[in-house]
Simulated assay, not measured.
Amino acid sequence: MSSRCGVKRPADRLRRAQQIAQRKVHGWRCFYCRRPFTEALPFTFDHYVPYRFWRTTRLRNLVLACQPCNAAKADSLPLTFALLLLRHSGELTATA
């Protein structure tokens, strides 16, 4: 968004910089389903570790996700992260 005089606000520049950085890291695809973004499938920012667990908007916790994947994940932990926490807590034992 721009201010009334057409000058971009710092928050707008920051958000644009985050978008560009995420595209460089993940490509122009959904982080979860890997479908490419289009006008019909626009991107959203998703907190990889849900905001309710880690209250930060740091770039390393944000991923680009399509709306269906973002809505499906909601406030749950990603499976890989949840398994790592379970293994660390001793609840999950490695099987050979």
Rank of each mutant, 00 (worst) to 15 (best):
S2A: 10
S2N: 11
S3I: 00
R4L: 03
C5L: 02
C5M: 00
V7C: 13
V7H: 12
K8V: 05
K8M: 08
R9Y: 04
P10K: 07
P10R: 07
P10L: 04
A11E: 15
A11C: 13
A11P: 03
D12G: 14
D12H: 11
R13P: 00
R13Y: 08
L14K: 15
R15N: 08
A17T: 03
Q19Y: 01
Q19S: 07
Q19I: 06
A21S: 11
K24P: 04
V25W: 00
H26A: 14
H26I: 01
G27V: 04
W28F: 02
W28Y: 02
R29G: 01
R29V: 00
R29S: 05
C30P: 05
F31L: 00
Y32E: 08
Y32A: 03
C33H: 04
R34D: 04
R34W: 01
R35A: 12
R35Y: 09
R35C: 10
P36Q: 06
F37C: 02
F37P: 01
T38W: 10
T38I: 03
E39Q: 06
E39T: 10
P42F: 01
P42H: 10
F43R: 03
F43D: 12
T44V: 01
F45L: 05
D46Q: 13
D46V: 03
H47Y: 09
H47W: 09
Y48L: 09
Y48R: 14
V49I: 08
W54A: 09
W54T: 14
R55K: 15
R55V: 05
R55M: 07
R55P: 04
R55I: 09
T56E: 13
T56A: 07
T57Q: 11
T57R: 13
T57V: 06
T57D: 15
L59F: 06
R60E: 14
R60P: 04
R60N: 11
N61W: 04
N61M: 05
V63K: 05
L64W: 07
L64K: 09
C66S: 13
Q67Y: 07
Q67T: 10
P68T: 03
C69A: 08
N70D: 15
N70T: 14
N70E: 15
A71S: 14
A71G: 10
K73V: 05
K73W: 02
A74R: 13
A74G: 14
D75G: 07
D75L: 06
S76W: 02
S76R: 09
L77G: 04
L77V: 06
L77Y: 13
P78H: 08
P78E: 12
L79Q: 09
L79T: 00
L79S: 08
T80S: 12
A82F: 14
A82T: 13
L83T: 06
L83R: 10
L83A: 13
L83S: 14
L86P: 09
R87A: 12
H88G: 11
S89D: 10
S89Q: 11
S89V: 06
L92A: 11
A94N: 08
A94P: 03
T95W: 11
A96C: 06
